[in-house]
C-alpha cells in the first residue's frame, strides 16, 4: 500500500491549489480579483428539461458566467471526466437561473437573471497533461474532452492556465490564457478526498472538526456527531467508527465509558501530528494490527 497516503495528499493538494487560485492573496492575483466568487461546493444543479444534473467540485459566479469546475489529480483521463463535463455543458441557462434564484445570492447583490454563460472547466496537474500528450490514446481523450470543456492545468508555484477547449466569456478567456499565478505552498482548506478514504477522513476530523472546536480545551463527540458534521457527504457510520477507534489507538483522543470520544489539549500533539501515522501504515493496517495483538494475548 506504499504511496496510498501520498496519492490522497496529491488529491487534497489539487483542491487547495485551485482554492488558492480563487483567493489569490499570496500572489496578488486570483479569480476573486476578476469578480468570481464561490456559489458552492458539492452542489447538484438539476435540469429536468434537458434531463441532466450537474455536480461539479466548485461552482463560481461573477454575475454573468457560471463556472463549473472539476478538479482532477489522477493519472488518466477517464470516460467519467468526459461525462461530467458533458452534463455541465448541457445544463440549460434557465435551469441554472432557477437554481441561483433559490439561493441567497440576491441578498448579496447578484441577479440570477444576469447569467449569460455556463462554462464547464476541468483541471489537471500540469505534469500529467505534459505526459498525456506523449501517449496517443491519452492525447485523443484530451482532444475529445476539449470539445466539451475548457481544459486547464495547475501546479504549485506555477499557474492556473488554459490548455485548450473553448471559453465563452472573452474576459475569462483572457485571464486564463495569460494564466493565474499560484503560490508555491497553497494553504489547506480541504482535507477530504472525493472517495473519503479513512486516512483523509481522520485528517479532516482532526483539522476541520476538532481543532476548530477546542474553545473550552476539550471536545467530546459521538459517531453520529461526526456523521452530522459531514452531513453533505453521506459517510457510512462504520467508516466513522473505524476512524474514531484509530484516533483513540494513536492517542489523538480517548474513548469514554459511554462510547463517545474525548479530544483534549493534552492529545493535541497527536491530533496535529495525525498524518505522520500514515507514513508507515494506513488506518486499516493499524486496526488489524490492534486486532492481531489482542488475539495473540487472548491465545495465552
Amino acid at each position: 500500500m506504499d504511496g496510498e497516503w501520498e496519492r490522497q495528499k496529491r488529491e487534497i493538494d489539487s483542491y487547495n491549489i485551485f482554492f488558492s487560485a480563487i483567493k489569490g492573496e499570496v500572489t496578488g492575483q486570483g479569480l476573486l480579483k476578476h469578480g468570481y466568487r464561490i456559489v458552492g461546493r458539492f452542489l447538484d444543479i438539476p435540469d429536468s428539461y434537458n434531463e441532466v444534473e450537474a455536480s461539479p467540485d466548485f461552482v463560481l459566479f461573477d454575475g454573468e458566467t457560471l463556472v463549473m469546475v472539476e478538479v482532477k489529480s489522477g493519472e488518466n483521463i477517464s470516460t467519467r471526466d468526459k461525462e461530467q463535463m458533458k452534463e455541465c455543458g448541457q445544463l440549460g441557462i434557465e435551469a441554472a437561473q432557477n437554481y441561483l434564484s433559490d439561493t441567497d445570492i440576491q441578498s448579496k447583490g447578484y441577479d440570477p437573471n444576469g447569467l449569460r454563460y455556463i462554462q464547464p472547466c476541468i483541471i489537471y496537474y500540469e505534469d500529467f497533461i505534459e505526459e498525456c500528450k506523449t501517449f496517443d490514446g491519452c492525447e485523443d481523450a484530451l482532444a475529445e474532452l476539449k470539445e466539451y470543456a475548457a481544459v486547464l492545468t495547475q501546479d504549485k508555484g506555477s499557474a492556473l492556465q488554459l490548455e485548450g477547449g473553448n471559453i465563452v466569456s472573452q474576459d475569462l478567456d483572457d485571464v486564463l490564457s495569460d494564466g493565474i499565478p499560484l503560490p508555491q505552498l497553497p494553504d489547506k482548506n480541504v482535507y477530504l478526498t472525493e472517495g473519503i478514504e479513512k486516512e483523509s477522513l481522520a485528517v479532516s476530523i482532526c483539522y476541520d472538526c476538532v481543532q476548530n472546536n477546542m474553545g473550552k480545551g476539550r471536545l467530546t463527540v459521538s459517531e453520529t456527531d461526526i456523521m452530522e458534521y459531514y452531513s453533505n457527504r453521506e459517510i457510512p457510520i462504520d467508516r466513522i467508527s473505524d476512524v474514531l477507534k484509530f484516533l483513540d489507538d494513536v492517542g489523538a483522543c480517548r474513548e469514554t465509558d459511554d462510547g463517545q470520544y474525548e479530544f483534549t489539549t493534552g492529545h493535541m500533539r497527536n491530533i496535529v501530528g495525525i498524518e505522520q501515522n500514515f507514513e508507515e501504515n494506513l488506518v486499516d493496517d493499524w486496526l488489524e494490527g490492534e486486532a492481531e495483538s489482542q488475539k495473540s494475548l487472548s491465545d495465552f
Binding site: 464561490i38 456559489v39 458552492g40 461546493r41 458539492f42 452542489l43 447538484d44 433559490d102 439561493t103 453533505n232
Partner: peptide, 8 residues
Amino acid sequence: PVKSGFTI
C-alpha cells in the same frame, strides 16, 4: 451550508 453542499 447551501442546499446539497456548502459555500465558504
